[in-house]
Design a protein around this nucleic acid. Structure first.
Lengths: 110, 110
DNA sequence: TAATGCACTTACTTAAAAGTAAGGGGATGA
DNA sequence: TCATCCCCTTACTTTTAAGTAAGTGCATTA
C-alpha cells in the first residue's frame, strides 16, 4: 500500500458501498440468481433498489445479466469473471464483520 | 462464508462506509496523526466530517484518541489494537480498488 | 491589546440515498 | 375476458449524509 497516492479503498467503497450492493454480491457469490430470488433472499429490499443496484453492478462489469427470450421473461444475474475477483475481498470483509459482530455481542453480554 | 446467515459484509460497510472513514483509516495505518495532519492529508474534508467520523471510529473501538493536557491542545489519533485488525481488510480492498482503477483507465484509453 | 493556533461544536443548508406506490408490456392460464 | 406472472420503470416523498460558515476556549506570541 502506498500512502502517497490517493487511497483506493474509496474505489471499492464506491463500487460496493451503500446498503444493498454487498448483499447482492453476497448472494451471487453462491450462485446465479433471478430477480425474484434476490427479492426473496434480501429482506426489505424494494424492487427499485434491487433493479437500480443490479444495473450499477452490471455497468461496472461485476454482474452479468442474461436474458432468456421466453415468456414470461426470464433474467438471470450472475457474477462476471471480473466480479469473481471480488470474492476474496468479500471473504475478508465478511470475516472481519463476523468477528466484529461477535465482539459486540460478547461486549453487550458482559 | 455462510450464505444462510445474514451477510456480514454489511457490518464492515457499516463501520467503514461513507466517504471519509476509509481515508482516515488509510492514513492512520501509516502512523498516528493529529487532527490538523489529517485535515491536510485528506483534501476537501471539513472539520465537521473529520471530527464526526473520528468519533464514530473511536466509538467502535477502532481509533484511539490520546489527549495531551498541553496548551495549545494536542490530540493524537491512532489505530487501536483492534483497529489494526482492519489492516488486512484495507489491503485487499486497496488492491482491488487499484486494479479497478487501472482497468477503467485502460478501458477509457482504448 | 490583538492576533494566532489547535481541536473542536453548533446551526443551518444542500445533496444523495432510499422508501412508497403505482404502472407497463407481453404473454399465458382459467 | 380477466387475472396472473415476471422484470422492471417512473414519479414522488422521506431519510440520511455531507457541505458551509461561524463560533468557542484556552494560552502563547508580537
Amino acid at each position: 500500500m502506498n500512502h502517497q497516492r490517493e487511497c483506493p479503498v474509496e474505489t471499492l467503497i464506491h463500487v460496493l458501498g451503500g446498503k444493498w450492493k454487498p448483499m447482492i454480491l453476497w448472494h451471487l457469490i453462491e450462485s446465479k440468481k433471478r430477480f425474484n430470488d434476490l427479492e426473496k433472499l434480501i429482506p426489505d429490499v424494494s424492487q427499485k433498489m434491487l433493479s437500480q443496484h443490479l444495473r450499477d453492478l452490471e455497468r461496472e462489469g461485476i454482474v452479468d445479466r442474461t436474458v432468456y427470450p421466453a415468456i414470461p421473461p426470464k433474467v438471470e444475474y450472475s457474477l462476471s469473471e471480473y466480479g469473481r475477483t471480488l470474492i476474496p475481498v468479500a471473504e475478508v470483509m465478511c470475516a472481519w464483520g463476523e468477528n466484529h459482530n461477535k465482539r459486540k455481542y460478547e461486549e453487550s453480554a458482559s
